[in-house]
Design a protein around this nucleic acid. Structure first.
Length: 308
DNA sequence: CGAAGACCTTG
DNA sequence: AAGGTCTTC
């Protein structure tokens, strides 16, 4: 390695104009439950999606990035949904008539919704049932490490003897594709700490490998049709389908109702005792066509400040 | 239909 | 109990 400033096969640091989140909001966006493949060390975030591995840091001049060869600024901008005007989108939420929403927005300025690869998002949220983010990240990391292709630029760069065990997680492996997962025995999936989710993932993989194009077609459908189709998959209910469409397809009208959103609406909107389906209906009508973005503000606030 | 239980595993 | 889904009373 002779290029100055590079390490582990990365390019040099480059500015990424157009987004200036605080450290907390950067963390909330990358590691707040939308995605499960970002890890922070020494104020540097390392993340992987598709065949891309990228690092982000907040310097004096703003957000900077570097990536493995083959990863362009355009790849990163797409992942970060950089082409959307998030200030304008947030401004169009009904915060003027909703003081709690206004409060949440103020608490997480510049929060945004990621645009992750559709299939990988599905895999992540199939792992998510009754699990916390740390555990979901653990499962996904094991899947990548044990069953995903390693990303070439990193392989030769890994230190032979690691100083501190586990300091660098599986960020140098891509996730296995659905066709690859279809060939993995269920017991090997369970060995990745998937538990009962292993059967869902295995059956989904079998279906998807027999129906090439099915995922792409689903992603391209309008929200209601896409959601109905996703819910045909084993292990995909309302909540998972909405998460996949919101975080992996840019469908900002999707309004996932998990325990945090349930708590938020019960506590801050007086919807105590309402069931998830009722809360979902309230959310879509009250927050409008960008309900998913509103959901993310409520979710982040409730998790960070709401307690219990 | 709507409310419980089961489903894996770990902190 | 944990960011659910599916099956069964």
């Amino acid at each position: 390695m002779t290029r100055s400033g590079s390490s582990k096969g990365f390019s040099d640091w480059q500015p990424l104009p157009g987004w200036a989140p605080s450290p907390d909001v950067l963390r909330e966006t990358l590691d707040g439950g939308q995605a499960f493949r970002w890890n922070e060390a020494n104020n540097i975030w390392t993340g992987t999606w598709s065949t891309h591995c990228v690092q982000l840091r907040l310097g004096d001049t703003g957000l900077q990035w570097r990536g493995t060869p083959g990863t362009t600024a355009a790849d990163l901008r797409r992942y970060l949904a950089h082409e959307l005007d998030w200030t304008a989108l947030t401004n169009s939420l009904p915060w003027r008539s909703d003081t709690h929403l206004a409060h949440c927005i103020t608490a997480f300025p510049d929060l945004r919704i990621l645009r992750q690869p559709f299939g990988e998002t599905l895999l992540g949220f199939l792992c998510s049932a009754t699990k916390q983010i740390v555990q979901i990240k653990q499962m996904v990391a094991l899947l990548a490490e044990r069953h995903g292709q390693s990303l070439p630029p990193w392989r030769a760069q890994l230190p032979l003897g690691r100083g501190s065990a586990g300091a660098e997680p599986s960020t140098c492996h891509r996730l296995p594709t659905w066709s690859e997962i279809a060939t993995i025995p269920e017991k090997d999936l369970r060995a990745c700490l998937l538990g009962f989710r292993a059967r869902y993932i295995s059956e989904t993989a079998t279906f998807l490998s027999k129906h090439p194009g099915w995922l792409d077609e689903t992603e391209a459908l309008p929200y209601p049709a896409a959601k109905a189709r996703l819910m045909e998959l084993p292990g995909v209910g309302e909540k998972v389908a909405d998460c996949v469409l919101l975080f992996g397809a840019g469908k900002l009208e999707a309004f996932p109702v998990d325990t945090w959103v349930l708590k938020s609406l019960a506590r801050r909107y007086g919807l105590d005792g309402w069931k998830p389906a009722q809360v979902a209906h309230f959310g879509r009508t009250h927050f409008g066509p960008l309900a998913g973005l509103a959901q993310q503000y409520l979710f982040s606030w409730e998790r960070k400040f709401g307690g219990r």
